[in-house]
Design a protein around this nucleic acid. Structure first.
Length: 517
RNA sequence: GCCGCGUUGGUCAAUCGGUUAAGACGCCUCCCUUUCACGGAGGAAUGAGGGGUUCGAUUCCCCUACGCGGUACCA
């Protein structure tokens, strides 16, 4: 049987990094086993529909390099890939009816208000959240309690109803989780979950089982928050298709907030100053913005790499992996059971490593866009074939000091635009007439220099310093500040070389004016 | 409350009964570097608690504690 996995998000907003990691593990397992990776949109809750969210998810996966083989944007033979469209074909209704016929499900006519009343009425200190289950269902308005004629009358009168699973008490439901091993539940503790809502839409519980069956899903990986409802899904498989056809389950550990405990949420990111979503996302209804890893300046290679390591490792201590290496080495057996706290510092370290590792050509267009947004001119025109242009050379020169893509603005911007302010405070205290004369002489020498490369430029500079009996060290920092505006940047003479004669002289002259002011 | 799942340094984590309990991030010290960074050397820092099983438990079992997840006509 072919290996087929699916990622089934609900299009309700930005894609959380935990979601991307679920995608990643799905993707890796599928690729590793020559299987298919399917994107299925779980839009069964019309009240939560958010325009643009589906496109956002698809774009996020594209950016991360985790492209599905099938999905709403890439129809295959198991379509449609949106549950709202599948519902329109009557797919779920049919199976709900089968459950009804078999006695595994029943009609329930309780209104939301009645349910609320029930919960209030039976709430005790012992049991703060009463369930609609084998104990209480006979006190509610459903086809198990009402007599046949009454049920028939209500149905014919068009009374709104839901279909609930009939949980048989006293049973043990067991399954093998790929990560956790044997997991056991007693049906007594599971309530009669709604399978088909009053609007005719299936709930997740029915939809996931029916769709996994119809789409021939062989392995179902999902977040740990789904573990408590696993018995419902297993029973549904048993009633509908047979447990032998059921996919293998794996419940992934959660990604936790860095401080304290609990699931990492967008709120935590806002509070602590780091992204939680894959890309920027603005809620179309509230207008509330959220930043993404992409826009924060993460490379997709780094994003995928750091996500992979949040809950898995290959046991060798290796931490840097390409997607291909991950496909080769990933194994569900080595996925952890416990959740991992997200550490943004470590995330930045991964990105730094990837910025260093990849040739600047891999991300120069992204950086060029950042520069353009700052109004800094570069020689990097999109589509320009200048692979060894100044821009790329500069990026190579400074990349080891950039953790995030926007760091290039500070580290490389001065190569293309003279600093607007100069840190004169860094040189003024030790400034004197001898230095003034030295730099005046330096300008003259630079004008005459026959060769313009970092090495000879540096040697000449040092000879001049010796002649002027000034320690080179006392001259290097002023030169640096004149050229870049502050105490940062790569080796000074690499800067001089790239800046060129005209620009170097120009910057020294104008800086001299400011310093002597 | 009930059900389920977890628990090795501040964080990510290796170990599949016997180790001086790896490695990485971060932090600190030093070297390199006449800035920063990279690179290199070193340092501080870990098995929640209690019972078993065993010649021997971080590792296997039980209990407790703690944490998390679920307990919706949301996924």
């Amino acid at each position: 049987m072919k290996v087929r996995l699916r990622f089934a998000p609900s299009p309700t907003g930005g894609l959380h990094l935990g979601g991307v990691r679920t995608v990643l593990y799905n993707y890796l397992f599928a690729r590793q086993n020559d299987g298919d990776f399917v994107l299925r949109i779980e839009d069964t809750d019309q009240s939560r529909y958010v325009p643009g969210a589906e496109e956002y998810i698809i774009e996020s996966l594209r950016w991360a390099g985790l492209e599905p083989d099938e999905g709403p944007h890439k129809p295959g033979k198991y379509g449609p890939y949106r549950q709202s469209e599948r519902k329109a074909q009557g797919l779920y209704q049919k199976y709900a009816q089968q459950l009804l016929d078999q006695g595994n499900a029943y009609y329930a006519f309780d209104t939301p208000e009645e349910l609320e009343t029930m919960r209030e009425k039976f709430k005790t200190a012992e049991n703060p959240s009463p369930q609609y289950n084998h104990i209480l269902r006979h006190r509610m308005r459903n086809s198990l309690h009402l007599d046949q004629d009454e049920t028939k009358r209500l149905l014919e009168a068009g009374t709104p109803y839901v279909i609930r699973i009939r949980m048989e008490p006293g049973q043990t439901v067991q399954f093998t989780d790929m990560i956790r091993g044997e997991v056991t539940f007693q049906t007594d503790g599971v309530d009669d979950k709604v399978l088909l809502k009053a609007d005719g839409m299936p709930t997740y519980h029915l939809a996931v089982v029916v769709d996994d069956f119809l789409m021939e899903i062989s392995h179902a990986f999902r977040g740990e928050e789904w573990l408590p409802s696993a018995p419902v899904h297993i029973l549904l498989w048993r009633y509908l298709f047979g447990e032998d056809k059921m996919p293998q389950w794996a419940h992934l550990p959660l990604i936790l907030k860095p401080d304290g405990n609990g699931k990492l949420s967008k709120r935590d990111g806002d509070r602590l100053g780091f992204p939680v979503f894959s890309m920027n996302w603005t809620d179309p209804r509230t207008g509330e913005p959220a930043t993404g890893f992409r826009e924060t300046g993460f490379l997709p290679e780094a994003f995928v790499n750091l996500l992979a390591m949040l809950g898995w490792n290959d046991g060798t201590g290796q931490e840097l992996f390409t997607l291909d290496e991950l496909i080769e080495k990933f194994s569900m057996e080595r996925v952890h059971k416990g959740g991992a706290k997200f550490d943004f510092e470590k995330a930045k370290w991964f990105n730094h490593e990837w910025i260093k590792k990849l040739p600047a050509a891999a991300y120069r267009h992204n950086v060029a866009e950042l520069f353009a947004a700052q109004g800094i001119p570069t020689d990097d025109a999109p589509g320009a074939g200048a692979t060894h242009g100044k821009f790329e050379r500069v990026l190579e020169l400074v990349k080891e000091r950039c953790h995030l893509l926007p760091d290039f603005i500070q580290q490389a911007g001065f190569f293309f635009q003279a600093p607007t302010t100069i840190d004169t405070a860094a040189v003024k205290p030790k400034w004197n007439d001898a230095k003034n004369q030295f730099f005046a002489e330096l300008v003259r020498q630079l004008q005459l220099a026959e060769t313009w490369d970092a090495h000879t430029l540096e040697n000449n500079f040092k000879e001049m310093a010796a002649a002027a009996t000034i320690k080179p060290g006392d001259l290097l920092m002023p030169l640096r500040v004149m050229l870049v505006g502050g105490k940062f940047g790569p080796h000074v003479f690499d800067i001089v070389e790239i800046l060129g004669r005209e620009e170097t002289i120009h910057r020294i002259k104008s800086a001299l004016k400011l310093i002597n002011d």
